[in-house]
Nucleic acid binder design. Structure first.
Lengths: 185, 185
DNA sequence: GCCTGCTATGTGACTTGATCACAGACCCTT
DNA sequence: AAGGGTCTGTGATCAAGTCACATAGCAGGC
């Protein structure tokens, strides 16, 4: 766990390798992933909280072995003042995050669950088409409930797009999933 | 209209007075407000798009008479490099926006419509408790459909919290609304 | 092996919210 | 006063979220 909802922020973080999942959690346990911080990205939220002197509005947790550099605010400020490249980098990150999160709002507000799930499956599909993930994890990713995902996956299975086993999803018709993922509505 | 979804961004904008509503619109006409840019705030999205060289992921429209300063990217870059105060200001804005939009994600994902609507009414309630707003506008604000708002308002009216007329909402029991707004779930 | 406990999945019943279709009501302009 | 636009009300239906609980698979200890 890198930071929790409500934590106050002490230093600037820069991830050199690994992956940090940044997400928001409701009281009833439902989660929604906001974005991920990966190799050579800054944890934007940290920066935001540093500057605004606000506590974190979300949680961050490592998903893999992760290395990061922690920089005290003073040094960070110096960097911003003195290095064009550093400043450019930080702003780039900010722009990307804001864009990610706005996209997430659109997705959640207007998107249909079958399409969003198909997209997620296509995105995660590895070379061998064998995905190791639980329904709960997919639900958290999309900000919905596990049952909704279970039912939708079952539907995909009935349509011969995937095959389900415990903790595993075998993608049998990637192009079929792509077709759903690419449909507008 | 200040900018549209997909527009590319040419200059940095700083609002000196007035209010710009930044929102996302779906094909079917549903909208969701992301945040507002008001007196002495920068249009963060503009900055983000400038830096990332991305088109706008949302739309911006003035809600009142609005004045703004447009600054070419070059001058903006100079400002960032030379002025600590300017840099601090820009970062503050960014932090606030990111925080706003993350809060919006939580609200939409986990929030119940009655509570969200009550909150909105409390927030908008003027001195004389007489609100001039249409159901459609409230729906856009909360990212839901007009019918949902109409029905919920009707419910509030039955519970003697408000009275409805065309284009007007008279708030008759503000503390009652507050009670709903403050309930956690 | 077999039992036990934990995690993951399946499913019915129900509630809430979104969509569709349309009917009135109100208001402004001519 | 008549007609057209905007705003509101409402039933029917669908999609998604919630609740409750039943299995099913897996791992560790005996």
């Amino acid at each position: 766990m890198v930071f929790r909802q409500g934590d106050s922020c002490q230093q600037y973080l820069f991830v050199t390798s690994g992956s940090v999942r940044v997400y928001s959690r409701a009281e009833n346990g439902r989660e929604v992933v906001l974005y991920r911080v990966q190799d050579n990205e800054s944890c934007t939220l940290t920066t935001a909280c540093l500057f605004a002197h606000n506590p974190y509005p979300a949680e961050g947790i490592t998903e893999t072995e992760t290395s990061a550099i922690a920089i005290p605010q003073k040094v960070f400020d110096q960097g911003l003042a003195q290095s064009d490249a550093f400043r450019q980098m930080i702003f780039d990150q900010y722009a990307r995050r804001l864009s990610d999160v706005i996209h997430r709002v659109e997705d959640i507000s207007f998107g249909h669950i079958d399409i969003r799930l198909a997209r997620q499956l296509v995105k995660l599909c590895p070379q061998n088409a064998q995905l190791s993930i639980t329904h709960q994890a997919l639900a958290n990713e999309l900000g919905t409930a596990r049952e909704v995902i279970s039912r939708q996956l079952k539907q995909f299975e009935r349509n011969r797009l995937i095959q389900l086993q415990r903790g595993q999803i075998q993608i049998t018709d990637l192009s079929g999933l792509r077709a759903i993922a690419d449909s507008e509505t």
